[in-house]
Nucleic acid binder design. Sequence first.
DNA 1: CTGAAAGCGCTTACAG
DNA 2: CTGAAAGCGCTTACAG
Lengths: 342, 342
Amino acid sequence: MSRSTSTKSRASGRVTLSDVARLAGVAPMTASRAINQPELVSSLLRQRVEQAVQELGYVPNRAARALASAQSNVIVVLVPSLSNTVFTAVLQGIQDVLDADNYQVLIGNTRYSDAEEEKLLNIYMQSNPDGILLCGLTHSPRVQQMLATSKVPVVSMMDLSDDPAQLCVGFSQLDAGETMTRYLIDKGRRRIGFMGAQLDERTLKRREGYRKAMMDAGLADPQLELMVPDPSTIALGAELLGRMLARVPDCDAIFCCNDDLAHGAVYQCQRRGIAVPERLAICGFNDLPASAWMKPSLTTVGTPRYRIGYEAATMLRAAIRGEVPAQTHLDLGFTLMARESA
Amino acid sequence: MSRSTSTKSRASGRVTLSDVARLAGVAPMTASRAINQPELVSSLLRQRVEQAVQELGYVPNRAARALASAQSNVIVVLVPSLSNTVFTAVLQGIQDVLDADNYQVLIGNTRYSDAEEEKLLNIYMQSNPDGILLCGLTHSPRVQQMLATSKVPVVSMMDLSDDPAQLCVGFSQLDAGETMTRYLIDKGRRRIGFMGAQLDERTLKRREGYRKAMMDAGLADPQLELMVPDPSTIALGAELLGRMLARVPDCDAIFCCNDDLAHGAVYQCQRRGIAVPERLAICGFNDLPASAWMKPSLTTVGTPRYRIGYEAATMLRAAIRGEVPAQTHLDLGFTLMARESA
DNA sequence: CTGAAAGCGCTTACAG
DNA sequence: CTGAAAGCGCTTACAG
């Protein structure tokens, strides 16, 4: 696999801009312009360059461009999970904005781990990103420091910050948790359990809302909270339902921190012959596709995940361009979906 | 926001390797070695460099490294969907192999479109990837040409190729489709429908297997095939079930090309009071988490998606290192999951 | 509208 | 084990 020439050159063998320029009979600078800012080049030269590009199959070298221009056109997105469709919908929204714009989106999966987030961000900072999209408001001190010193624009997704300076797009997880709980209380439920898994920031916020509503109604009871750090799955929901009923036999409703858990709880009730919602009301969070179709259909909270990604990317792009944002906090709201299960 | 110095410098203001070297009192080359190949540097200088890195908060510039070394450490992965958990599991397997290795994984979502695949690959080739991971065996001529001329190692995922030279990891989609159909025939079903959506390569291969089994049993009937190009969803499965029964009233089993469709079909049967499996057997493909838990539980085909990603990434890494693969085709098989619905 | 020069921040390929 | 020189493939910042 030796090079055909015997020079000591480190050339990669790939076609470069200089090759294109030579074939087109112009300076590399002109070839560069013809490709990136064609309106600045006479149509004659532009055509000659375009033809040379075609003929040689020229592919620009992104690393060289990034180095010379000090602009990477890279956007880093860190999500806590790829198996949770909530975040893949967020990613879809992001890509729909950014793909069209010649941005390269680096997707990192933090697996709900602060340490992993730190590690990924550390690696991705090497790519000198133009902007960063994160999930949630709380991050490790080192992550906060990295972001602060880099001065790269950041938009936080999913929740709304208390800090007015922080760019964020989402909805109040706390309000949503409170709203769902009040709905159950209004339906006459009294012994309302809360089932939480993963114990990520959003689950804890939803529980805060649950607590607030229970407290206000004078129904609070620590026994009613069942929290485990395991990842949310249907299987876990099925298991936790059993544990909840064993611990609180008179439990008459369960607010699951997300739909996966709720699905598992409903399926478990079907197996055990527990009537939903008559004997036990069950509700979830996020409104996954199956929730509307299963029997009984699931009462849950609809969340604007696709739009969160879409609007966050739009806001980030504006920030990168140095535009002053019309608003730093974009509240996209949530929707209570009252169905058969509660 | 002007620079503090009045030089014409294009310097980005970021800390560079030279800054580290200066502070450590060594040449940039030595600083580079201390960071990337520490075993080649005396422990004294190594420590001085490490301290300088800490003190300055040095972050290496990946673009500069890629340009100088002609090695990007980028791996491109193209999947047809991010909302389908099959592919997010594949990605998980890939990341578990590659994240540890300082590779940067670029994830592209082709949305089941050849044109989009072509566009994404075109853009990603600018990053000069060390290797590429694709889903499926068939690609547009231009994609094939790009891959051929670039000489970048490629591993195909999901199915097994007829071409012995093509690196691939997966299982026979055709055999799986045939196996599931024979299972239904062996159960005494005669009017077995096939419901397919998206019409991607894998769905068509599964249908081929279905046809083969039906033909062999003398049960083939074009009326039994219901194929639509729309994306697979639960809602679509529910709708298609209605259309299938309207068209083939004596249909006694339905093989859905994937679990989403099957879930929708089962839910629709529940709504219409159609007994599953007594009146109508329903089965799916992929064994998503809900399939084992729903009532009736879903008969389906278990597929090794995480392992496909894991093994494909492992094979690609070996190919990048120039190792001769022990085998070019890795068949990970599939498992018929016989449950309640069929 | 076009181009010659310099430089982005690293690593290769030597030489000592 | 250490380092001076050159170069990777582009774009910036000028100058004409």
